[in-house]
Amino acid sequence: MNLAEGVQLVSGGILAVMMIVTALGVVLLSNIVYSAFLLGGVFISISGLYILLNADFVAAAQILIYVGAVNVLILFAIMLVNKREDFKEIPGRWIRNASTGVVCAGLFALLGTMVLVTPWSVDSTSPAVIENTIVEIGKHFFSDFLLPFELASVLLLMAMVGAIILARRDLIPESMPRQETISTSLTLPERPRELTSIGATSGEEN
């Protein structure tokens, strides 16, 4: 093992440990601001792993998009919602936590076994052959991934339109008096079901 391989191995290990610890922190800490910052840590460690895999462009995009945009957006959302509410401790909560833990551990064991037993076909192309990953990505975008690449623009356009619809302030129209059909102001025309006592409708709620 020469020096370069050793450095790769050690930094890979450090990044993996960092990723797992921060990810556990995101899930287990109860303060949501800590979780959001730790999520940034997860994204940065993933980007480090991309660099080790010679995917430099993906690593940069990961930091720009996930840390720079998504995570900052999450923090903004948390700061704008400054509503404090103390939740009551649910009785028997540890049963839920324990069962979730068992399911997660089982899933982890299954996936771990799968990763170890499967004979993965490893690409033997040396990374030295590709000198500029951005050019390669560009070639793919304009040849075999052309259709999904272009289609993503329609998807983003519609996501933008949808976000504007959700966020804009609507003029709430006056509910017109009886005019042959029901008219409402931004609600469903169907009336909500009458809420009766729980015992009476236990058969219907499903």
């Binding site: 999904p148 998807l155 519609m158 949808g162 619809i165 959700l166 709430i172 102001s185 931004l186 609600t187």
Partner: peptide
């Protein structure tokens, strides 16, 4: 991509009645 296109538009349509 096309699955996401279908799903995201469906989520938007589902929540279209904002005040309900």
């Amino acid at each position: 991509i096309s699955l996401e296109m279908l799903s995201i538009s469906s989520y938007l349509m589902t929540g279209y009645m904002k005040r309900d």
